[in-house]
Amino acid sequence: MNLQTLFQDFNPSKFVVHTCLLIFTILFALKLDKCVSWSFWIVFTPIWVWKVLVIMGAIVGSYVWWRYPHFRLEGEAYVHYKSMLISLALHLILLMFELLVCDKLESARHLWILVFIPLIFISIVSVAVCIWAVKHDRSFELELFCAVNVLQFIFLALRLDGFISWSWEVVFVPLWIVMCLSLVGVLYTIIFAAILLRTPEVSAQQRRSSFHSAVGYTFLVIPILVFQVLLADKLDDDIRLSYIAVASPLFVSFVTLILMSFSAKGGNKWWFGMRKDFCSFVLGACPLLQEYANIAYHSERRTNGVELESQIVGAKEKTVKRADLLKPVVPIISIEIPD
Rank of each mutant, 00 (worst) to 15 (best):
V49H: 01
S62R: 02
Y68W: 07
S123R: 03
V115Q: 06
H70K: 12
F140Q: 04
I131A: 14
W50K: 13
I59T: 11
L114I: 02
M56H: 07
W132M: 03
I117F: 03
V49P: 08
S165K: 01
L53E: 01
S62M: 13
H70Q: 15
F140A: 05
K104S: 08
L160K: 07
S123W: 00
L144I: 06
C102L: 08
L156M: 14
L151H: 00
Y78H: 12
I117V: 07
Q152I: 12
V60G: 04
I117H: 03
D137L: 11
D161Y: 08
A77F: 11
L158I: 00
K135Y: 09
Y63R: 13
F140W: 07
F163P: 01
L114E: 15
A89R: 00
W50H: 06
D103M: 05
I113M: 06
K135R: 12
F140T: 02
L156P: 07
E74F: 07
F155R: 05
D161C: 07
E106V: 00
R72M: 09
H136R: 11
F121S: 12
S83T: 01
F121I: 15
F121V: 14
P118V: 04
I113G: 09
Y78C: 04
F163S: 09
S87V: 01
C102Y: 01
R67Y: 13
L90D: 05
V64I: 03
I124V: 15
G57W: 04
F163T: 05
V127N: 06
T45E: 01
I47S: 02
N149D: 01
I164G: 02
D161S: 06
E106Q: 11
L160I: 13
D103Y: 03
A147P: 04
A77K: 09
R138S: 09
R72C: 11
I47P: 12
P118G: 02
S123V: 08
F121M: 14
K51V: 08
G75D: 15
T45S: 05
W112V: 02
H136E: 00
F153Q: 09
I47G: 03
P46H: 11
H110V: 06
L156Q: 04
L100M: 10
V134Q: 11
E74W: 10
V125A: 06
H80W: 00
F71W: 14
E143D: 10
L90V: 04
R67H: 15
R159C: 01
C146K: 12
Y63Q: 14
L94K: 01
V49K: 02
L100I: 02
F71V: 14
L88T: 06
G61T: 09
L119Q: 13
